[in-house]
């Protein structure tokens, strides 16, 4: 199920996760969101960028619980809760945000 944007083709897995982390661009994230009928605003980008930094450091996509705690620590308590994150990413913060961030699906996420 390759992704086609601006005439370029990007490999993805069967669930739409980018096959090559290195292919990622912000434009790609926007296009993936648009395809889902979502629009990315600053609040979304905070989380997406956080996920990319996390992956860069640890080479894994964090579990929701870990993401929530870490976001709270970095961006403030009002954002470090699952309600806030689910409002931003209704399909699940780990799943949906990881997808837009170009990361693989988090380990243990079904």
């Amino acid at each position: 199920m390759p992704l086609q944007i601006d005439g370029k083709t990007y490999e993805t897995d069967e669930e739409g996760y980018l096959a090559n982390l290195g292919d990622w661009t912000p434009e790609l994230a926007t296009a993936m969101a648009t395809a889902d009928g979502a629009e990315l605003e600053d609040n979304h980008w905070e989380v997406i960028n956080f996920l990319r930094e996390y992956y860069e450091e640890y080479q894994i996509a964090p579990a929701v619980r870990v993401l929530t705690k870490a976001i709270g620590k970095k961006l403030g308590k009002d954002k470090g809760n699952s309600k806030y994150l689910y409002e931003l990413f209704p399909y699940g913060p780990a799943k949906q945000a990881c997808k837009y961030a170009g990361l693989p699906k988090p380990t243990g996420c079904v």
């Binding site: 450091e57 080479q59 894994i60 964090p62 579990a63 870990v66 705690k69 870490a70």
Partner: peptide, 14 residues
Amino acid sequence: MKNFSPAYAALGDY
């Protein structure tokens, strides 16, 4: 192969 050793540093977060 992927170097998965950085992930051990995340265990504290878990």
